[in-house]
Design a protein around this nucleic acid. Structure first.
Lengths: 123, 123
DNA sequence: GCAATAACGAACTAAATTGTGAGTACAATG
DNA sequence: CATTGTACTCACAATTTAGTTCGTTATTGC
């Protein structure tokens, strides 16, 4: 539960008012958010497809993060019209389209600059 | 205290092994880390200068984040040789130099895409 | 010699994020 | 008409992150 006047939340607000970078962190800083974005970018545009792709995520957490990405204007829901089983589709907004290239750049940077361990897929 | 085998930390490791983006998030995802980086980039290369600049941060939190950025290879400490008062200086590594332009891009993106509130400085 | 400032560290508490168990609504399938 | 699958929501518990309290070393300025 968020407390309105804890130092913690005051600092959060202070930072949001100080630098736009913190807004971006809020958008994509969550544990699974960037992975969900990359997964949708790979064509997994339905709840069950994303869930399969990120095989350690639970229904509940996925639902929560999708909702949050929707509120933040990164994805949009739509019904798939003549599909069996009938379902819901997630699509990127324009906002997302402009963000994703930047995320990929960061991802590449990460691949080049992390301490060398195992080879890891670049998103 | 970190638990080694909680689902939470297993998921964290899974994500680190899945996509390099999560490594980047680990570097810069902390509440104050990006602000500290921007502050140093603005020329505040000493503990006390950064503290003044980010006026809501406490000594302890700043110290912790600086140490973490140092371990992650983003900044380096050095003694200022003939300064009065004698002190310690923080400088960016090459790694940081290559990261900062990407952070600025994200910051700009944030400025253009956040819901319009007050004008906020671009870092 | 005494207070003040810089630059921290350890240990603890408060608060936020993440994960879990249970349950819902609706359509199709057997 | 009971079961299965999709796409969720809610309340609560586990875990992690952020902040606080107190203390340290070392130097400078008076």
């Amino acid at each position: 539960m968020k407390k309105e006047n804890s130092t913690n939340s005051l600092n959060e607000r202070y930072l949001l008012n100080t630098c736009d970078f913190n807004y971006v962190l809020q958008l994509i800083g969550g544990r699974w958010k960037s992975q969900i974005i990359f997964s949708i970018a790979h064509g997994n545009n339905r709840f069950s497809l994303i869930k399969q792709d990120l095989d350690n995520i639970s229904d509940q957490v996925l639902g929560r993060q999708l909702r949050s990405l929707e509120i933040e204007g990164i994805i949009e829901k739509s019904e798939i019209p003549f599909s069996i089983p009938k379902g819901i589709q997630y699509n990127f907004t324009e906002k997302a389209d402009s963000l994703i290239p930047l995320l990929r750049e960061l991802c590449q940077w990460g691949g080049q600059h992390k301490r060398p361990l195992d080879p890891i897929k670049i998103c």
